[in-house]
Simulated scan of single mutants.
Amino acid sequence: MTQAAHVRPYRPGDREALAEICIRTADNGGDSRHLYPDPELMPALFAAPYAYLEPELTFVLDDGSGQAVGYILGTADTRQFVDAFRKVWLPLVTERFPRPDGTPSTFVEEMTALLHRPERMILPELDGHPAHLHIDLLPPWQRKGYGRELMGTFLGALHAKGVPAVHLSMLLANTPARAFYDRLGFHEIEVPDPGPLAYLGRSTEGCGGDRLGR
């Protein structure tokens, strides 16, 4: 009998699925495979380091067959995560993605430069929201309530760790994502010169599924 789709903790066997989900949602919510000669660049930035460094805060949406079709992942402490990213994660991926020489001149070089600048995640205005997260679902699994379920699971895990609040960053152009976060009770955090990004945050309290967004 096939099991229903459900949220569960990450397992090492989900690594390739996490990368695939990231790749297929990394172009402002759409497929990014046409943008990067090496599709593993975006997972190396936004998915794999979290599963590697803090697997206990990585959760997936299982389609019922064991296949991950969505995820939420992040860190309980952004400043500590940046330190671990620099000291532990970067040495694992630098040979594949070396730091660009000079000023980046292409989109791929810009994203590779971001990989080598994890300190960009540290902004004093975000210190009151020490955790941060990334959430992505494959298109067929969006707008069905699974994003809310993933978020509730992640916020509950943070709350159990005593983490008071969480933040995320998103492209301003991704209006469907902004509407989703607004419904879940996220509010905008003002930071200097945010560029094309919005920074959003919320408390980890009241994280039960039916209380999210209230």
Results as ranks from 00 to 15, higher is better:
L18W: 01
L53I: 02
D63S: 03
L18T: 01
R117H: 15
P140T: 00
R33A: 05
R143A: 15
L126G: 03
R96M: 06
E188D: 11
T153R: 13
V191I: 10
E125C: 03
E20M: 01
S65V: 09
S203A: 11
I23Q: 00
S169G: 15
G213D: 08
R183W: 06
L200T: 05
K87W: 10
D14W: 00
A48H: 10
L200P: 05
Q67D: 11
R143W: 12
G102P: 09
R202W: 03
M170S: 15
P91Y: 00
L133C: 12
H167R: 04
G195Q: 08
A19P: 04
A177F: 05
M121E: 14
A19I: 03
P124M: 09
G208T: 13
E125Y: 04
L115G: 06
A19C: 10
I21T: 00
E95G: 09
T25D: 00
I135T: 09
E188I: 12
G74D: 05
P91D: 02
R117P: 05
P124H: 06
P176N: 13
A76W: 08
R202H: 05
A5C: 07
A179I: 08
F59E: 05
D83Q: 14
D27V: 05
A19L: 04
V7R: 03
F59D: 06
L155I: 06
G145S: 06
P140H: 03
V82F: 07
D77F: 06
R96S: 02
G209Q: 15
L115M: 11
F85G: 08
A131L: 04
E56H: 13
L114E: 15
F186W: 07
F107A: 15
Y50T: 07
I135D: 02
T58C: 09
A165P: 03
A17T: 00
L172H: 14
Q80E: 14
V108L: 07
G195A: 09
E56R: 13
P9D: 02
S65W: 10
A177E: 03
D14C: 00
R214L: 15
L158C: 09
P192A: 11
R148S: 15
P118K: 11
R86D: 11
M42W: 01
R33C: 02
G206V: 02
L90M: 11
E20V: 01
P194K: 08
H129V: 12
K161F: 10
R8M: 02
P196Q: 04
A160M: 08
I189M: 08
D31S: 01
M170H: 11
E16A: 14
V82I: 09
E56D: 15
E190R: 14
H116Q: 10
P98T: 07
D210Y: 12
Q142W: 06
R33Y: 03
